[in-house]
């Protein structure tokens, strides 16, 4: 039988040392992803590195225009404590599993698993978040859109752990929508996050569960940014033409790289993203216009 080592550092420095000394050990935060694999016999780790005792990971704080969310902050905490600062992230967290899952699962764990279906990822992409990672030697930040390098693979080095995520506070409307084939407790068939940044004139997008990694719809972002700037729409706050919304939706759909699997079809995912993009843009732009009144 595979002998598993259980490591339980009590502090962040200890955690990084343990990570360096046991690069094969699987880091575990809330366990809501890792244990699914272990329980089904798909993962036989030689070591498990429990990060649950590392208090440093459990905190969050505001710094200038950003929020630093510790990797160990749970989905429940995102919902109850960060709804105002990070509304789309809170919305995404609310769609994760069930209350007991949200009580255990963490933002850092979501990133560590790096599933293309991870619910927080599209929001991090849309918001322009940066993932803070560290080894016992050095700490660095990785832009969210460079963090996901393949299906369930991320940019984390063998001696690194995720310490937190830097997320710009919402300065404009945001949305997150997730399609599933039942009305709760479902892994995304596809999902879409949209964030409008009126202060910088930027538009952020994030697509989940419709590609090998969570994706940004860069062309859609550029198209809409260009259109809004060109027409002075940020200032005039006039309604968006149907054709603009359609074009944006089409570009979002085209940015996806979905497959057929047990949860949904390629064709449906592209279609649903088009619908979500259209609706999300409508809601966000409407919110932006309303907020000005």
């Amino acid at each position: 039988m595979v002998q598993t080592t259980f490591l339980q550092p009590a502090s962040w420095p200890e955690a990084l040392e343990a990570r360096a000394a046991n690069p094969d050990a699987v880091p575990v935060a809330g366990g809501t992803d890792v244990l699914v694999e272990v329980n089904f016999g798909r993962l036989h780790p030689s070591g498990l590195l429990d990060l649950g005792r590392v208090r440093e990971l459990r905190t969050w704080g505001r710094e200038k225009g950003r929020v630093r969310v510790g990797a160990g902050v749970t989905y429940s905490e995102l919902i109850t404590q960060l709804r105002g600062d990070l509304p789309a992230l809170a919305t995404a967290a609310r769609t994760v599993g069930s209350p007991p899952i949200r009580n255990r699962g963490t933002l850092g764990g979501n990133l560590g698993t790096a599933s293309p279906a991870g619910d927080c990822h599209p929001v991090l992409l849309a918001c322009g978040a940066e993932v803070e990672v560290a080894s016992s030697r050095v700490s660095r930040t990785v832009p969210a859109d460079e963090f996901f390098v393949g299906p369930k693979r991320n940019a984390l080095g063998a001696d690194e752990l995720i310490s937190g995520v830097w997320i710009p506070r919402a300065t404009g409307p945001q949305s997150f929508s997730k399609v599933g084939t039942r009305n709760a407790m479902v892994i995304a068939v596809c999902s879409l996050a949209l964030a409008l940044h009126p202060d910088s004139g930027r538009v952020g997008t994030g697509i989940g569960s419709a590609g090998p990694v969570p994706l940004r719809a860069r062309e859609a972002e550029a198209f809409l940014e260009g259109h809004l700037a060109e027409r002075g729409a940020w200032e005039s706050k006039r309604p968006l033409e149907e054709a603009v919304v359609d074009r944006f939706a089409e570009l979002v759909s085209q940015a996806a790289a979905p497959i057929d699997d047990v949860r949904g079809s390629l064709r449906y995912r592209r279609h649903a993203l088009r619908v979500l993009a259209r609706r999300s843009l409508g809601w966000c732009w409407n919110d932006y216009r309303e907020a000005a009144r």
Binding site: F6, Q8, V28, G30, G31, T32, L35, V36, N39, F40, L48, D50, G52, G97, S98, P99, P100, I101, N103, R104, M185
Partner: peptide, 25 residues
């Protein structure tokens, strides 16, 4: 897999799926 909730308990007062908590945790 934490999908059914049949194993739900309180862990230090927090509702959790006990099938997704390591013994050591």
């Amino acid at each position: 897999q934490g999908e059914c909730g049949s194993c739900t308990v309180y862990l230090d007062g927090t509702l959790v799926c006990s099938c997704l908590v390591l013994a050591g945790q």
